[in-house]
Design a protein around this nucleic acid. Structure first.
Lengths: 148, 148
DNA sequence: CCGCATCCCCAACGATACTG
DNA sequence: CAGTATCGTTGGGGATGCGG
């Protein structure tokens, strides 16, 4: 058992990885941030406080479950505040904390990057797809569907 | 059918959402970026070109499958370049493109943010957990496991 | 050494129904 | 209106084995 296959080393690495991540808050946070719904919620709230149902409508394809779940975790992390107004139909508002606002600035930067460079990415994709198909059949140069 | 329940509206919204996303490149890209492995790979490559196996070791808990998959999509998007050296054991190097480098700058910013604010987040979590447990049983204050 | 194909599992998500 | 609990599905992703 002195020799270790690459697979075994990977398995080992994974165990260490798990343990490592437990104690590595940065990665926890990185994980949290690279969640699809988190970025959408934070972006939506960047414009100002919103009610729960407003968020549900604003974000469109989100289920109530995920919305609540996401908001809960963000609240727990001190990214948003949750304010309950006990009127006859209960009203709940969510708002970015200063901490959340500083984060939203970064996410906005990423969004801006995406908008700025989307054309380059599209071109790269077309080139990649074209060369990939020409690899199997060098004759026909297929034109990838161009972006809108 | 004039009246629509919230659930029905959600289902509708989801259809529109799908169609909408097809034509919205920004969201495609946002999706791609908010992938766990993507951020790790791009961060790793920010330090300079690396071989496939180096990346595998550097990133630790990644499987060969996900590493390849991630690198492929990044290559397709023009974020990294893939250079094959046909030596006896094949050697493959990956490197950030200028486009990828500009993206990595943002991801590094996010990472810096995480490192800078992790303590605030931790405090917020402890506060949240403490108040949550005191809500059900005001007497026993359970101490949340503190971070390292 | 690189990476693709296959199988398989589980946790994440959506839908639904029910409380305050 | 806001949130919880439960169940069913699905696809992400890990393990393995082969091919270049």
């Amino acid at each position: 058992m002195a020799t270790m296959t690459a697979a075994e080393r990977r398995a080992r690495a994974r165990e260490e990885y798990d343990a490592f991540l437990k104690g590595c808050p940065t990665n926890q946070l990185l994980d949290r941030i690279s969640d699809k719904w988190v970025s959408l919620v934070v972006s939506a709230l960047a414009a100002g406080p919103m009610r729960y149902s407003d968020l549900g409508r604003r974000i469109a394809g989100v289920s109530a479950k995920m919305l609540t779940q996401t908001l809960r975790s963000l609240e727990r992390d001190g990214i948003v505040t949750r304010t309950v107004t006990p009127s006859v139909p209960v009203r709940v508002d969510y708002e970015l904390t200063p901490l959340g606002a500083s984060l939203s600035a970064l996410l906005v930067a990423v969004k801006d990057w995406a908008e700025l460079h989307i054309s380059e990415v599209d071109e790269a994709r077309e080139r990649y797809d074209a060369s990939a198909s020409s690899a199997s059949s060098a004759s026909s140069a297929s034109s990838a569907s161009s972006a809108s």
